[in-house]
């Protein structure tokens, strides 16, 4: 019996799990929203702005599949165009918040010490604030509508996201492979970007998707309070605000955008949870 390693076959790779049907549907929903956001103009049957004050709000008909709103605008076309603000703001919020949070979280988790306690003090403060209330008040008082809301949400989201990145970094930091790199004299920046970041990136990605859903809901909420997008903009939250009074005459004008908010958010949440489970399984 000699010291020898038997040439083992590479362990058969687990067959790539089939994507569950719910996730397939979620991806389809997101794809539809993306297509509507970019090609809304060619898909929508009508302009979202054409007013027909003479007919006002009507229930669904052959001409207007989702009926019209108080000003006689085609609800379906407005919903399709509304995909744009439903997509772009949340994307900016999720990406922006995580870009900042990744930098702060890496610094905080890897450097520790004063940097860490300073950043975490700030995070604790932000988390103790009633975020949605802050958004309502700041956007309401400062003005500036949609993009102010996006900016405020980025700041609010950065705090919890920083905590997520930091704890992912803290999980990697004490592992021997980091110590081995340090003992070899690998530079700090290389350790951060070549060793730690790639190992925490999948988790960050999953949270970006979850953040998107949360930002969508928040932005729609602000628009629903009349604080987000400019009046008249086709936007799902804004439609809920403007069409509140026609719940009895054309409920579709409320139910359709409401359903779109839920569907999109549910889809992104499902995808985010699924990614998270996939990335953390091993």
């Amino acid at each position: 019996m000699t010291e020898h390693v038997e040439a083992t076959q590479p362990k058969e790779r687990a067959p790539r799990d089939a994507i569950p049907p719910a996730i397939v549907i979620a991806f389809i929903v997101v794809a539809i929203v993306v297509i509507c956001a970019f090609f809304g103009g060619s898909i929508a049957p009508d302009s979202p702005f054409t007013q027909r004050l003479e007919i006002g709000d009507t229930p669904p008909s052959a001409e207007f599949p989702a009926g019209t709103d108080l000003l006689g605008r085609d609800v379906l076309s407005r919903v399709i165009h509304g995909a744009w603000t439903a997509l772009i703001g949340p994307v900016v919020v999720a990406a922006g918040a995580f870009a900042i949070a990744t930098v702060l979280g890496l610094l905080s988790g890897y450097l520790g010490g004063v940097v860490d306690s300073g950043i975490m003090r700030w995070v604790d403060f932000m988390l103790a604030l009633p975020g949605p209330l802050v958004a309502i008040v700041v956007v309401g008082v400062v003005g500036g509508g949609y993009w102010t809301a996006v900016a405020v949400l980025i700041i609010l989201f950065t705090a919890p996201d920083t905590r997520i990145v930091r704890s992912a970094v803290l999980e990697q930091r004490p592992r021997p492979y980091i110590d081995a790199a340090r003992a070899l004299g690998v530079s700090k920046t290389r350790i951060l970007f070549v060793h730690i970041l790639p190992n925490v990136l999948p988790i960050i990605l999953a949270y970006v998707v979850l953040d998107f859903a949360f930002a969508l809901v928040n932005l729609a909420g602000l628009s629903f309070l009349g604080l987000g997008v400019e009046p008249g903009t086709p936007d799902w939250g804004r439609m809920l605000f403007e069409n509140r009074t026609i719940l009895f005459t054309n409920p579709v004008a409320l139910l359709l955008p409401a359903a779109m908010v839920i569907l999109t958010a549910v889809s992104m949440n499902l995808i985010g949870d699924w990614l998270f489970a996939r990335f953390t399984r091993q």
Binding site: L240, V261, I262, V266
Partner: peptide, 25 residues
């Protein structure tokens, strides 16, 4: 689990509108 995903994805004003429509209207 599915209920949880829907609940987290549906802000109260959207849920409210659906409840209003079904139970109120």
């Amino acid at each position: 689990v599915m209920f949880g995903v829907f609940g987290i994805s549906s802000p109260a004003f959207v849920t409210g509108i659906f409840l209003l429509y079904v139970f109120g209207v």
